[in-house]
Each structure stands twice: as C-alpha cells, then as structure tokens.
Amino acid sequence: MKTHARDKVTIEGICDYAGVSRFTLFSGFKEYFGDSPLGWLKKYRMTQVRHALMNSNSRTKVSSMAMEWGFNHFGRFSQEYQLFFGELPSQTLSQNKEV
C-alpha cells in the first residue's frame, strides 16, 4: 500500500493483490494497526504530506501537495489535517519557511 499510496486505492484492489477476502483484510488491519485499511492509508498519506510540507521550498503549494498524495477535496483535507496535527497545513508550511 505504501508503494501505491499516491494512487487511487480500493478495498477490492487490496484484496485482489493480497489474495484475501474483505473480512480477512479488515480483521488483519484491525488486529495489527487498530484501523481499517483505508483509515491506515489516510493516516499514512497525511503523514507524508506533513513531511513534504516540512521539507518543502517556498514555492510549494499546499493544494498541490495534497493532490499529489490523493486528497482531491482541499477543504476536507485541510480540516482533517488540522484534526491529525493540531494546525492547518498552511501553518506547517509557513513554519518551515520561517526557519
């Protein structure tokens, strides 16, 4: 999933690739990660966006970075980012520029 994290990922695609049923996939993820497969993927993507923003240059746009990692609804992305990290993505980016 990490290799294809920027792509459109579906439960069916994961099941086909792994050769397991939906039930097995969900129960395995719940047991090992405490989350659903797509929940885990969202957290992974959010973390990757944050790392990218923290290591970006002054020309980086938050919306471009979000879209690169599969977030197509910028308003929703921004709200969820704030829930995950306690700040807006633009704040993460501007803190990087101040350093």
Rank of each mutant, 00 (worst) to 15 (best):
Q48G: 09
R76K: 10
M54V: 07
T24S: 13
S58I: 01
K42M: 08
K61V: 02
S27D: 12
C15Q: 10
L38N: 06
S90E: 14
F85A: 08
T47P: 01
T3V: 09
T47L: 07
G13P: 07
K30D: 13
V99Q: 13
F77S: 03
A66T: 03
S58Q: 08
S27C: 00
S64F: 02
F85I: 00
S58P: 04
R22Q: 11
E68Q: 11
Y17I: 07
Q79D: 15
N72I: 00
D35H: 05
S64N: 14
W40T: 13
R50S: 05
A66E: 01
F23A: 10
G19V: 04
F77G: 03
M1D: 13
D35W: 02
I11T: 14
S63N: 08
S90L: 05
W40E: 07
R22I: 01
T3K: 15
T24M: 06
L38M: 15
S58R: 10
S36G: 07
P37C: 05
W69S: 09
G19K: 00
F85Y: 13
L83C: 06
E12M: 03
E31T: 09
H73Q: 13
N96F: 02
T60D: 11
F33Q: 15
K97N: 10
F85E: 06
G75K: 00
F33E: 14
F77Q: 01
S64R: 11
S56D: 05
M46E: 08
D16G: 12
A66D: 05
S90C: 04
G34C: 10
K43N: 14
W40M: 08
S63W: 00
E87I: 05
F29N: 03
F71W: 01
R22A: 08
Y44G: 03
E87R: 05
K30E: 14
M1I: 08
M67G: 13
S64D: 15
W40V: 11
L53M: 05
A5E: 12
I14N: 06
S27W: 00
